[in-house]
Design a protein around this nucleic acid. Structure first.
Length: 616
RNA sequence: GUGCCCGUAGCUCAGCUGGAUAGAGCACAAGCCUUCUAAGCUUGGGGUCGCAGGUUCGAAUCCUGCCGGGCACGCCA
C-alpha cells in the first residue's frame, strides 16, 4: 500500500466536499502535495492543500485549513491534525496505523514498492553503446550501470522496459578496425608485421580474431578482392568485439534485451537478408533482423531514406549553407550547399547536415533513423544514456525525435559525468594513446561487481564521481556498499539466531496475527516503519525523474536507521531484537526487521547489487 | 565566441521537481565502550545555498544578468 496515495486521495475528496465552488480541474492543477515534513515536530505527513487552494477558493490559507481540518481529523489512522505556519495541515498518525502498515508490507512481500504509474508504457532505454572496436574501459562503466539500474527501476514502477544497445558498426572506425584485423590475420599466417601503424587499433585483443579467421579459412583472404575482404574482416571483427563486450557487461550482471545495428539503417531489406544468410552477421552481433523488419514499414527503402522522407514531407529538410563554427579557427572550412534538417525549429542552435560531401549519410542521419525506428516499434518514451563528452549532441537528437514523432514520443537524454579513478588517494592517469587505460574487467575483477555498481549509483548522474579502490573495499561505516550490505547481513544473522532461541515458532508468518505487532512501541521502531512506508513513493518519484541514485541514498538511509536501532541494543538489552524471555516482543521485532531486510533487498535488486547473508 | 552541466559546512555530497529553523558522512572537539548485538557509540560547534536582481503567501530549487569550474562545439563516430 502507498500511504501517500491513500491519504492524498482522501484529502482530495475532502477538498471537493468541503470547499464550495472548487472544480476538480482546479484541484488537479493546484500543485497540492502530501509530504513527510523535514522536521518531525510537524507530524508524519503534511499537505499544502489549503495554501495552494486558497486563491481558486477565494479565501485565506489558514481559513481554508480550518475548514478542512475537522474532516481530516476523522480519518482512520489519524491521531491529530494541526494547522501550522502559513497554512500547512500537519497530520500525525497513530502508532496502530504504522503497525498495520508494517503488516501490509509483510503481506505484500517482495512485491512491496512496485507501482503501476508506468501503466505499461513502452520505454526504450539505450545505454552503453560503446563502439565495437575493443573491450569496455572504465569510462563506459558508469553509463552501463546507470542505464541498467534505471531500467530495473522503471520496471518496478510499472513501465514496460526494453534495454537496448546501439552498435556503431558503420563508418570510418569500422574500416580501420577491418584493416587492423587484416593485419593480425597476416600475422597469424606467419608474416612479420612489426609495429602497428599509426591510426590502426594496436590492442592485443585483435590477435585472437586474426587467428580465428586463419583457423576457419586459411590463407584464402590474401587473394580476395579488397572490397570483399574488408567487409569480411569488418564483420568478423565486430562479431568478435560484440562477444567481448557482452562478456565484459556480463561481469557486471548487465544484459541487454536487444541490440540494434547501425549498419542495417543503411541497408535495404533484400541486402540485409542476404548479409544475414551468407555471413550470419546480424545474429552474430545479437541483432534481431526479423523483429526489425516486422516493424519497418517499407522494406525496399533504407531506413535512413524513410526517416528523411518523413521529415521532408513535413518541410523540415532543405538545402543550405552553414556558417563556419565560431571560436576555433576555420582551417579547412569551406562553405558549401548541403542537405540540412531544420533542427532550430525544435530548439537546436543550428540546422544539422545529413549528408557528407561524399554523398554518404552523416552519423546524425543514421541516428535520426534509429530513433525513428524506436518510435515505429511502439516506444513512446525513449531514454538515451550518454557520456559527458556527448553533451553537445542532446539538442539535435531531442529535436529529431520531436520532429519525427510530432511530439507523440519523448526522449530524455541522461548524461553521465566522468569517473575519476583513485588509488591511494592518487588519480590513476589514463591515456588512450599509450594504450594505458583501465578496463572494466580489471576494475570488476579487483573490487567485485557489487561495489562497482553501488558506488557508480551513489551519486547523481550529472555530477562527477570519484572511485577510490581502497575505499570501496574497506570494511567500515565509511564505505556505503559495506554499510548497506552489513545491515542486511545483520538481519540475516538475527533470523538465524532466533531459530535457536525459539525453535518451535513459525517465523514465516511473523507478525501477521491480530495485535501481534503491538509490542512495537519504541519511537525508533516506528520511524523505521515510517521510512519503509515511503518506499513505494520513492520508487515512483525516482522512476519519474529517471534518477536511480535516489534508490541508493534511500537504502543507505534505511540501513543507517537500522544500525542505529541495533546500536541502542548495545546499551539497552531490552531493545534487542531477540528477547529470550519474551516470545511476543521477539515475534514483533522479527517482523519488523524482516520487513527491513525485504526492503533493503528490493532496493538492492533495483541497483543490481547482491544482498549478502553474511559478511566475510 | 556559442551551447550544456556544475557551484550547498573545512572536504565529499544529498536536498523528495516551489514548502516551515537547509541535511548526512568525513574531518574537528568533548565524553563513552574494550564488547561477540565484531568491523564502535553519543553529544557539540560549524552556512551570505557563487553574486545581484526578478516571479509569489513562500526560492537552494523557477526566470534574467554576471563570476568561477568542467565538457562539448566543422562532413568524426
Amino acid at each position: 500500500m502507498n500511504i501517500f496515495r491513500y491519504f492524498d486521495e482522501k484529502i482530495t475528496a475532502t477538498c471537493q466536499e468541503i470547499i464550495p465552488g472548487l472544480t476538480d480541474a482546479q484541484i488537479a492543477a493546484s500543485g497540492k502535495t502530501l509530504e513527510v515534513p523535514r522536521d518531525p515536530a510537524h507530524g508524519d505527513l503534511s499537505t499544502n492543500a489549503a495554501m495552494v487552494l486558497a486563491r481558486p477558493a477565494g479565501g485565506k490559507p489558514r481559513e481554508i485549513a480550518e475548514l478542512l481540518a475537522p474532516t481530516i481529523r476523522e480519518y482512520e489512522g489519524v491521531e491529530s491534525v494541526e494547522i501550522a505556519g502559513p497554512g500547512f495541515i500537519n497530520l500525525r498518525l497513530t502508532p496502530g496505523f504504522w503497525r498495520r502498515t508494517l503488516g501490509e508490507i509483510l503481506r505484500e512481500g517482495a512485491r512491496y514498492g512496485a507501482s503501476a504509474i508506468g501503466a505499461g508504457t513502452k520505454v526504450n532505454i539505450e545505454y552503453v553503446s560503446a563502439n565495437p572496436t575493443g573491450p569496455m574501459h572504465v569510462g563506459h562503466t558508469r553509463g552501463a550501470v546507470f542505464g541498467d539500474a534505471l531500467a530495473s527501476l522503471m520496471r518496478k514502477a510499472g513501465f514496460e522496459v526494453t534495454r537496448e544497445y546501439y552498435i556503431n558498426d558503420a563508418g570510418a572506425q569500422i574500416k580501420i578496425l577491418a584493416e587492423s584485423v587484416f593485419l593480425r590475420y597476416r600475422e597469424a599466417l606467419g608474416e612479420k608485421i612489426g609495429e602497428i601503424p599509426e591510426g590502426l587499433y594496436p590492442g592485443d585483443y585483435l590477435i585472437p580474431v586474426g587467428e580465428a579467421i586463419v583457423k576457419k579459412d586459411g590463407g584464402k583472404w590474401l587473394s580476395a578482392s579488397e572490397d570483399i575482404r574488408a567487409q569480411y574482416m569488418a564483420n568478423a571483427a565486430v562479431m568478435a568485439m560484440m562477444a567481448l563486450i557482452k562478456d565484459d557487461l556480463a561481469r557486471l550482471n548487465i544484459r541487454h534485451d536487444g541490440f540494434f545495428s547501425e549498419r542495417i539503417l543503411h541497408s535495404s531489406s533484400q541486402n540485409a537478408h542476404r548479409i544475414e544468410q551468407e555471413e550470419g552477421y546480424f545474429s552474430g552481433v545479437g541483432f534481431d533482423i526479423d523483429a526489425y523488419y516486422a516493424a519497418h514499414t517499407d522494406p525496399d527503402k533504407t531506413a535512413i531514406q524513410e526517416a528523411v522522407d518523413t521529415l521532408e514531407a513535413r518541410g523540415l529538410i532543405y538545402t543550405g549553407v552553414l556558417e563556419p563554427p565560431k571560436g576555433k579557427p576555420p582551417e579547412d572550412w569551406e562553405p558549401r550547399p548541403q542537405m540540412l534538417f531544420r533542427a532550430t525549429q525544435f530548439g537546436d542552435d543550428v540546422d544539422r547536415p545529413l549528408k557528407k560531401s561524399t554523398g554518404e549519410w552523416t552519423y546524425f542521419a543514421a541516428d535520426i533513423a534509429y530513433h525513428y525506428s524506436k518510435f515505429q516499434r511502439g516506444f513512446s518514451q525513449m531514454i538515451d544514456v550518454f557520456g559527458a563528452d556527448h553533451g553537445g549532441y542532446v539538442k539535435r537528437t531531442t529535436a529529431a525525435v520531436a520532429a519525427l514523432t510530432d511530439g507523440k514520443a519523448s526522449l530524455d537524454i541522461k548524461i553521465c559525468q566522468l569517473v575519476r579513478l583513485l588509488r591511494d588517494g592518487e588519480q590513476v592517469k589514463m591515456s588512450k594513446r599509450s594504450g594505458n587505460f583501465v578496463t572494466l574487467r580489471e576494475v570488476v575483477d579487483e573490487v567485485g561487481p557489487d561495489a562497482v555498481r553501488f558506488m557508480m549509483l551513489f551519486r547523481k548522474n550529472d555530477a562527477p564521481l570519484d572511485f577510490d579502490f581502497a575505499k570501496v573495499t574497506e570494511q567500515s561505516k565509511d564505505n556505503p556498499v559495506f554499510y548497506v550490505q552489513y545491515a542486511h547481513a545483520r538481519i540475516c544473522s538475527v533470523l538465524r539466531n532466533v531459530q535457536e532461541v525459539f525453535p518451535e515458532m513459525d517465523w514465516a508468518a511473523t507478525g501477521r496475527g491480530e495485535g501481534a505487532l503491538d509490542p512495537l512501541q519504541d519511537p525508533d521502531e516506528l520511524s523505521l516503519i515510517r521510512m519503509m512506508a515511503s518506499w513505494p513513493r520513492m520508487v515512483e518519484s525516482a522512476a519519474a525523474a529517471h534518477e536511480p541514485h535516489r534508490i541508493a541514498f534511500f537504502v543507505h538511509e534505511l540501513a543507517s536507521a537500522f544500525h542505529g536501532l541495533w546500536n541502542r541494543g548495545n546499551d539497552n538489552p531490552q531493545l534487542r531484537f531477540i528477547l529470550s524471555g519474551s516470545k511476543d516482543v521477539t515475534l514483533a521485532r522479527i517482523a519488523l526487521i524482516r520487513a527491513v531486510q525485504m526492503v533493503i533487498a528490493s532496493a538492492l535488486e533495483i541497483l543490481g547489487v547482491e544482498p549478502v547473508e553474511e559478511m566475510r
